[in-house]
Design a protein around this nucleic acid. Structure first.
Length: 842
RNA sequence: GCCGGAGUGGCGGAACUGGCAUACGCGAUCGACUCAAAAUCGAUUGCCCUAACGGGCUUGUGGGUUCGAAUCCCACCUCCGGCACCA
């Protein structure tokens, strides 16, 4: 007997899968299309190819592959493709540092990922492989951009944007974390630039409503997106500045507090600010304040705890509900990005307004009484955010604020001074990047097509796509895209008038690339279209999506937006891309997030080399519930390796004893003759089948599924020597071992395939998933638990169909139980048939 | 501050609908095999008392519901994640 040699086994099966193109599936109309089978689209988030794959990748693809295998063996035609999200900053930053072109570094990394995915034995349909950095792919990214542009969903605007001074690029709001660049941690600055945006805000309501269309997404991911979209209902109310003749609409969620507005605040970026103070005494102070604010980092300004600052404008607006004139201020606690950039300040009922009022000694007027009388009178209970009866609010006095809310909004609407309004936290998606390594934006600027000296943005016609990324010498951005240096490329002819024109030199955010890759997989070799509608209709939506929680907001929301926009454009027949989402937890090492700088990274290649892919894959699925994180443990890997070796030795032993042809009896043939230990082992095998199957169904509880197979193997070891005594027993050992191989196959596919071939012949992946025999799941006897006063006193074997009276009699007969009943009175008897008896004594 | 999630042996974790707490793995101890070690196979392993039989205690803390609570309810503590001057 030879030892378990994962290298040989894994090489053998990887060769089979590659030679036979086992995991390739065909589209409708193509040869080999399995139209009679139901489809299942199993997809893991595509990797960003930088360096080598890490354990996070291993876990993601191990989990996804287990699901893919499980579904195949349930009769589904599973599409399980792979690609690379290859554009992006790391390759470009590496280029700036080393001079190596991003394409070269990226291709090298892709080669490494591709090789390792094969070494891991992931069941990928390689015929659909794609890279988002290839012209064959980004041509269609550009095509989608043009479709959005036609629809007015891609537009250009000058806007205050988040600028990272180190990466020298604009960032999406989503890429700014705590006022810092998500990538490099540098505090971001605000700049005003002409940028391209996607109008995701048009889809805010549908993005919220269509959570209902999803089958199963983790609740916290939905919550995060909901919070990010940040829908607030309220009212828009117009305050007029008579002196300047300007109307200032404000958004408020609390129109019921309108009578308590005692001042009015504009954001420092408010466009009317200049006009309002021009030529007044306040002009200089206001301008200084605005400049000071502009110099502050987003992080500083965002700090909630610092004292409120601001400057009076020397102007006032009229409160539409009571005609009161209230003074105007500029203050940086009001943000231009949210609402209208202007607020009515109600210090009695808003803590920020309250702080400002205290700092500037402004009046505070309570308009809602507290329900608790003690705080109803003076300043004590202020600011008061809760509900209560109205006061100092004219004819609304005494009414509940909720009721008054509706009436005030109605009155405002009737007077044309306001209306119901909904506001969102979500901003449009800024997609321009002043970087080299991305898909060029397919737009040219033509002065002759423009007006008033402003160049027109002319879309590049579809037949001229792709707008290919030119080679450049210097990848370092200098406040403009490195593409701007490629003069030959920038200078072009206007597709509309034929005159001289200049290309857009910004590239697209890489999240654009990854917002539609799951559609391209369905028809990735199509040169005439982004995808064939029939193929998309057949495979979409993704039935099971798997990836890290870190994409809970960005990628997952952008992909949802793209799907809806493309459906509106008549290109897709689904509203949601991912019917089910599974987010896997992060693997840590020594309790800390892995990072190169901490030196605590785990290299999958190293472990695959030492223990084999089956061990590495099974370990990441066994270390804990896959949706939760877990700490990497070398001893844990050893344990899994030991288990697989144990299973392997069992297989060899069984094979040797069997000797003959691989046509062992089926479980139904074994069952009638099985009794005693043979029956016990048979039952254990069926218990394991049932357990593994249910664990797949219960949110992919792979840790307990693998534990069940371990139990089966342990039980087989315990009983095998006795069972070898006769032919029937030997057959049961063979059945148990083959079943263990079959059940471990989704996690350790090479070993599973090898065991099956040796003991049963044929390909395990072509075998239907085993079904547990209900007759073997139940047993004739059960362990009756006997408690006295809720405490366990004895365990008794009892017939599973025993009556309550019989169970009680059994319980009372127990010596261990009697000891605790002595001299006491039984006041209550609880019997749970098939489970337990509890005697309550006094 | 707001919104989620989680607290179980020495460690990772299991326990389905309120019914045997600690499955499985790691670690540890002992035994078999061996000249020896490794590997392997087998046994033991929550804590405390006891020579033993046996008994007591135990799922972050305190209370409650129940014949019975890791599980349900109330209050609190701790840790992790997300959002955060969003009007």
């Amino acid at each position: 007997m030879s030892g378990y040699d994962p290298k040989a086994i894994e090489r053998k099966w990887q060769q089979v899968w590659a030679d036979e193109r086992t995991w390739e599936v065909a589209n409708p109309g193509q040869p080999g299309y399995a139209g009679e089978k139901p489809k299942s689209y199993v997809l893991e988030m595509l990797p960003y190819p930088s360096g080598e794959p890490h354990v996070g990748h291993l876990k993601c693809y191990a989990v996804g592959d287990a699901i893919a295998h499980f579904r195949r063996r349930h009769g589904f035609e599973v599409i399980h493709p792979m690609g690379y999200d290859a554009f992006g900053l790391p390759a470009e930053n590496n280029a700036i540092k080393t001079g190596e072109p991003p394409r070269a570094a990226t291709e090298r990394s892709i080669e490494s990922f591709r090789r390792q995915f094969r070494e891991w034995g992931i069941s990928i349909d390689w015929s659909r492989e794609l890279g988002t950095h290839t012209p064959e792919y980004y041509r269609w990214t550009q095509w989608i951009f043009l479709r959005l542009f036609e629809r007015g969903l891609a537009y250009r605007d000058e806007a205050p944007v988040q600028w990272c001074p180190v990466d020298a690029t604009v960032l999406a709001n989503e890429q700014v974390v705590d006022g810092r660049c998500e990538r490099c941690g540098t505090p971001v600055e605000q700049r005003r630039l002409e940028q391209w945006f996607f109008k995701i805000t048009d889809y805010a309501d549908r993005l919220l409503a269509d959570f209902d269309l999803l089958d199963s997404w983790p609740e916290h991911v939905v919550t995060m997106q909901r919070n990010w979209i940040g829908r607030s209902e309220g009212a828009e109310v117009t305050f007029r500045c008579e002196e300047a003749g300007i109307d200032f609409p404000v958004f408020t969620t609390r129109p019921d507090t309108l009578f308590g507005a005692t001042f009015f605040v504009l954001a420092p970026e408010h466009p009317e600010l200049e006009r309002l103070v021009a030529g007044t005494a306040a002009e200089v102070a206001v301008r200084e304040y605005v400049n000071d604010v502009a110099r502050e980092s987003v992080e500083e300004r965002g700090d909630e705890d610092r004292p409120k600052t601001g400057v009076p404008l020397g102007r006032s607006v009229v409160n539409p509900v009571n005609g009161e004139e209230i003074p105007m201020f500029v203050a940086d606690y009001v943000l231009m990005e949210y609402g209208t950039g202007a607020i009515m300040a109600v210090p009695a009922h808003d803590s920020r307004d309250y702080d400002f009022a205290k700092a500037f000694d402004l009046p505070v007027r309570r308009v809602i009484e507290g329900v608790d009388d003690e705080v109803a009178q003076d300043d004590e209970g202020l600011p008061y955010p809760g509900d209560g009866p109205m006061t100092s609010s004219g004819r609304f006095d005494g009414k509940g604020n909720r009721e008054a809310y509706e009436e005030i909004v109605e009155w405002l609407a009737a007077e044309a001074r306001g209306k119901k309004a909904v506001n969102y936290r979500l901003r449009d998606w800024l997609v321009s990047r002043q970087r080299y390594w991305g898909a060029p934006i397919p737009i040219v600027y033509c002065e002759s097509c423009g007006e008033d000296g402003v160049a027109a943005a002319v879309p590049v016609p579809e037949e001229q796509l792709p707008v290919e990324l030119p080679e450049v010498e210097d990848y370092a951005p200098q406040g403009r895209s490195p593409l701007a240096a490629a003069e030959d490329w920038v200078a072009t002819a206007c597709p509309r008038c034929g005159g001289p024109a200049r290309r857009e030199t910004d590239t697209m955010d890489t999240f654009v690339d990854s917002s539609w890759y799951f559609i391209r997989y369905l028809d990735s070799r199509n040169e005439a279209a982004a995808w064939d509608r029939e193929a998309a209709d057949h495979w979409l939506p993704v039935d099971q999506y798997i990836g890290g929680v870190e994409h809970a907001i960005l990628h997952l929301m952008y992909a949802r937006f793209f799907t809806k926009a493309l459906a509106d454009l008549g290109q897709l027949g689904v509203q949601e891309p991912f019917a089910n989402l599974f987010t896997q937890g992060m693997i840590t090492r020594d309790g800390a997030k892995m990072s190169k700088s901490k030196g605590n990274t785990v290299s999958p290649a190293e472990y695959v080399g030492r223990y084999g892919a089956d061990t590495a894959r099974t370990y990441v699925c066994f270390m804990g519930p896959p949706e939760r994180g877990g700490d990497w443990s070398d001893e844990g890997v050893e344990g899994v390796s030991r288990f697989l070796s144990r299973l392997w030795r069992l297989c060899e032993e069984v094979e040797q004893r069997a000797g003959g042809p691989k046509t062992a009896p089926m479980t139904t043939e074994i069952r009638p003759s099985a009794e005693g230990d043979a029956r016990a082992l048979l039952a254990k095998a069926h218990w394991a089948i049932d357990k593994v199957t249910r664990d797949f169904g219960r949110g992919f509880q792979f840790n307990t599924a693998i534990a069940a197979v371990m139990e089966l193997v342990n039980e087989t070891y315990r009983l095998k020597d006795g069972l070898y005594a006769d032919e029937a027993g030997t057959a049961v050992v063979g059945f148990a071992t083959a079943t263990a191989g079959s059940l471990i196959f989704p996690f350790a596919p090479h070993l599973g395939a090898e065991i099956w071939e040796r003991l049963r012949g044929g390909r395990v992946w072509e075998e239907a998933w085993p079904a547990a025999d209900p007759e073997l799941l139940s047993s004739d006897t059960v362990t009756l638990v006997v408690q006295v006063n809720g405490k366990l006193r004895d365990r008794i074997e009892a017939a599973s169909d025993a009556s309550e009276a019989e169970l009680l009699e059994l319980a009372r007969a127990s010596e261990k139980v009697r000891r605790h009943l002595d001299g006491k009175e039984v006041v209550k008897e609880v019997v749970v048939p098939g489970k337990l008896v509890n005697l309550v004594v006094r």
